[in-house]
Design a protein around this nucleic acid. Structure first.
Lengths: 326, 326
DNA sequence: CTGTTAGCGCTTTCAT
DNA sequence: ATGAAAGCGCTAACAG
């Protein structure tokens, strides 16, 4: 080590000072510190990592690099990492189980110390397999082993909340724009919609259910399809906020007022949903908390402590896109 | 190496096969490949990095982990990295020059092979200093050395475009919600606003200029301040889209129609701006392209090629929040 | 308290 | 074409 020579000590001593591994006499310490300052020395993390078997890096797998949904969760992750010395490398699985697995293999080759999997598409078994190499914390699944932890939110209950709210306001013809057919969360939200209707004695009408893909454009398309087929309804429940935004625009284009003519409910409560016109009534997912709590749980596992952590439940946020049917 | 023993060859041979560094006889190659498959071997990237002096990682410095603005740019970065073998570690400077420098030092200690600095707050000189250690590509500044490249968009011209559009529509009383006072881009946008007004022979009215902070809430506050002080105006130009969203909500709350009563223009063209109600007229920043082009430029520098790259100019996107004054 | 030694997992001369 | 040996920069015994 350069610094060692400069300070006239051995590399070990420098290392000891850097890591606080052992007592070092004050004069040597001062000399070393001075040398470090002089050369602006910072230990090579790759060498450190190689030696210690810790890369001080965790991997985050998202499905979409550019989505307010993952964004908000990442903010939680970032805060959870604060003062841990850990950095994160973020990769995208692009909503594809295969690609997701590939990305995880890459992270593993990079020797990340742990992985956070957001909205994974892989099977639980695959996650469990990977977790033998490095601890994994995942959202969207219920897992609980020594090296794998999952947080599952009750989508069914969340959707029920939304539809029940609409029913309480007197709505009986409630359209539903679902998420992608192969998406588990989307399926659960559909189940919640169905249950709320059934409980209220409202017959399910397939024509009022149209498939979207979680993006704005699909919300718009879905609304137009509803209108083109002349469906009658007074409220729309969208499987996520982005879809609701699209639906909102379709309504605007038709000159239909929200909430005066039609009520609209979303799902997620993205940061932007408080600023739509009008502000969106939606089911709040504790996105930030999920990120933060998942990260803290992962840190615990990495440090050999038992895995634990719980996230707040979904809750309905009533804003201004819903009102009593007249 | 485990694989080496299994295949009955030396570690060097395995390495040669992995890297294609030299010819290897077919039978040995087959044996090694089989062994790799069997053990599912993937080289330890930290060891590789330590030896080769390349971490195959670049650092990205954003100012806000959770903002549609950076998001869109990051998507471009991600695409630019595709098939390069590079991964990125994203850190946030939180709009603070000091923190930004700290984060860069962290990235440097991690031996990233290059850095992309988005909307940096540091001085050009500081960037140049860091660039002696690792190549840096930055947005928001004009730089062009062997190891530092900057892309600067013409904010002044962009703002001019927006205000000129409003003036052409007959607006004369145009309010401006600025960005943070210490923000360079914001200052340039103010200059563009001023020039457009002056060119049209419209006197500048300080009362129509109110400071925001680039967030939705400040747009809302700014509008309210304008109303509370009884300003007269028929159009509002917001320093960025988020601010425009906030202004839009304030207008909605007052029952003022957009664009019928008041026209509104933003700046950025965030992905969500096509789906506001009504869709927002704004100055388009090629966020995605910036990310992609910056990344490709950085890759070139890393590979020893001359730095180059150019981003598309700002352009006005006329949607539905502006109309001719009656 | 501190220096010497070995070695983390890989690549790269240098021989052969 | 291939193996042996050295070494990337650091830390962790092991002596002393």
């Amino acid at each position: 080590m350069d610094v060692a020579r400069l300070a006239g000590v051995s590399p070990s001593t420098v290392s000891r000072i850097l890591n606080g591994t052992a007592r070092v006499s004050d004069d040597k310490r001062d000399a070393v510190l001075a040398a470090i300052e002089k050369v602006k020395f910072a230990p090579n993390q790759m060498a450190q990592g190689l030696k210690k078997g810790r890369s001080m890096t965790i991997g985050i797998v998202v499905q979409d690099i550019s989505s307010p949904f993952f964004d908000e969760t990442l903010r939680g992750v970032d805060d959870g990492l604060k003062n841990t010395g850990y950095a994160s490398v973020i990769v995208s699985g692009h909503w594809d189980a295969e690609e997701e697995a590939d990305r995880i293999r890459l992270l593993l080759a990079r020797k990340v110390d742990g992985i956070i999997l957001l909205s994974g598409r892989m099977s639980d078994q695959t996650v469990l397999n990977f977790s033998t190499q490095r601890p994994i914390v995942s959202t969207g699944r219920a897992l609980h082993t020594a090296s794998a932890l999952g947080f599952k939110l009750d989508n069914e209950a969340g959707a029920y909340l939304a539809v029940h709210h609409l029913i309480e306001l007197g709505h009986r013809r409630i359209a539903f724009i679902t998420g992608p057919a192969n998406n588990i969360d989307a399926g659960e939200r559909l189940a919640g919609y169905t249950r709320a209707l059934k409980e209220a004695g409202i017959a399910l009408d397939d024509k009022l259910i149209v498939e979207g893909n979680y993006h704005e454009s699909s919300g718009m398309l879905a609304m137009n399809q509803l209108f083109d087929t002349h469906q009658q309804f007074t409220a729309v429940f969208a499987a996520n906020d982005l879809t609701a935004y699209g639906a909102r625009l379709a309504l605007y284009r038709k000159g239909i007022r929200v909430p005066d003519d039609i009520s609209l409910v979303g799902f997620d409560d993205l940061p932007g949903s408080s600023y739509t016109t009008p502000p969106l009534t939606t089911v709040r997912q504790p996105l930030y908390d999920i990120g933060r709590i998942a990260t803290q749980a992962l840190m615990r596992i990495i440090n050999g402590e038992p895995a634990r952590g719980e996230v707040p439940p979904l809750e309905l946020v009533v804003r201004e896109t819903t009102r009593r049917v007249r």
